Amino acid sequence: MLTLDQLLAFLLAASLITISPGPDNLMVLSLGMSRGRKQGMAFGLGCALGCLSHTLLAVVGVSSLLVASPVAFAALRIGGGAYLFWLGVQALRSRGGATVPTHAADAPEQSAMQLLWRGVFANAINPKVMLFFLAFLPQFVAADRGDVPWQLAQLGMVFTVQAAVLFGVLGYFAGTVGQWFARWPLVALWFDRLAGVIFCGLGARLIFIS
């Protein structure tokens, strides 16, 4: 099982990353505002469930590397650190990302179940999410405690659960959140800055300390 320190550190980082303005949560917000709470929450749940496919890939890929070659595993950690650092720099340079997409309101009407599966599919085939999971999950693994695959699986499930909760809340309160972002656009900018600091810090830790 994960230690309490592992769980809290991962949950804090994952939650801050999830609420930072990005394509998934902005789409949840847009659907919630234009189609209603149920549709926004359904799409958000689908996006969260799509993370399970990336968890499986991370468990299989990282575990295979660890068994095959400790050097290759170290290279993955350093490469992942560089990728996270690059994401952090991009977020720090961002001018804010809380512009809610308007195409959701113009799309054909879809049921909540259709939107759920749309969210699952959109997330599951996103190569950027796959790269993120390969870079993000391993650094919260305590290799000295053994059973790396199970630790990775637990981290992936924790990420999925917190994403489902936060996306659900966002979809439910989409109208209020949308008005809030419209009134204080700098909030999105500072969410990006916070995510950038987290990414850069985690990336630097992987590159220089691991």
Rank of each mutant, 00 (worst) to 15 (best):
W150Q: 03
V187T: 15
D106L: 14
M157K: 14
I125P: 13
M33C: 04
F173N: 01
I17N: 01
L7I: 10
I78G: 06
R145Y: 04
I207M: 11
V169G: 15
G61S: 05
S69V: 08
A58E: 02
W190H: 14
G156N: 03
T176F: 15
A42M: 11
P138R: 07
A42D: 03
G88M: 00
N25E: 10
T160R: 08
Y172R: 15
V148Q: 03
A112L: 09
T99I: 07
I17H: 05
L155G: 03
T176R: 14
A153I: 12
L134M: 12
L31P: 01
P185N: 07
F191G: 01
L92E: 07
P149Y: 00
H54P: 01
Q139L: 06
S210L: 08
G156V: 03
A105I: 13
M130K: 02
Q114R: 12
A164W: 12
G203R: 10
G171K: 14
L65A: 04
S20V: 14
Q151N: 04
R118F: 12
S94T: 11
F43G: 09
V141C: 13
V148K: 00
L170W: 10
L49H: 09
A204P: 13
W150N: 00
A13M: 11
I78R: 08
V60T: 12
Q90Y: 02
K128L: 12
H54R: 05
V100T: 06
A91I: 00
A188V: 13
Y172M: 15
S64Y: 01
A68W: 09
Q6D: 12
R77H: 05
A13Y: 03
W117L: 14
H103V: 11
C51H: 07
G36A: 09
T176E: 10
C200E: 13
L115C: 07
F132N: 05
V60K: 11
G196Q: 05
A58R: 02
W150M: 08
V187I: 15
A122C: 13
L31A: 02
F85Q: 00
A124P: 02
G201C: 13
S210N: 12
L166K: 08
M41G: 01
L186K: 07
K38M: 06
V169K: 05
L194N: 06
N126L: 12
L65P: 06
L31H: 02
H103S: 11
A135K: 09
V100H: 00
M113Y: 08
G79E: 11
A204Q: 13
A188E: 05
A204Y: 10
G96N: 08
L7N: 06
A195L: 13
F191Y: 15
L155W: 11
V141P: 00
A122S: 15
A98G: 04
L116P: 01
G175C: 12
Q179M: 14
V187Y: 09
S69Q: 09
S94A: 10
L16G: 10
A42N: 06
Q90A: 00
S64W: 01
V165T: 09
R37T: 09
L152Q: 08
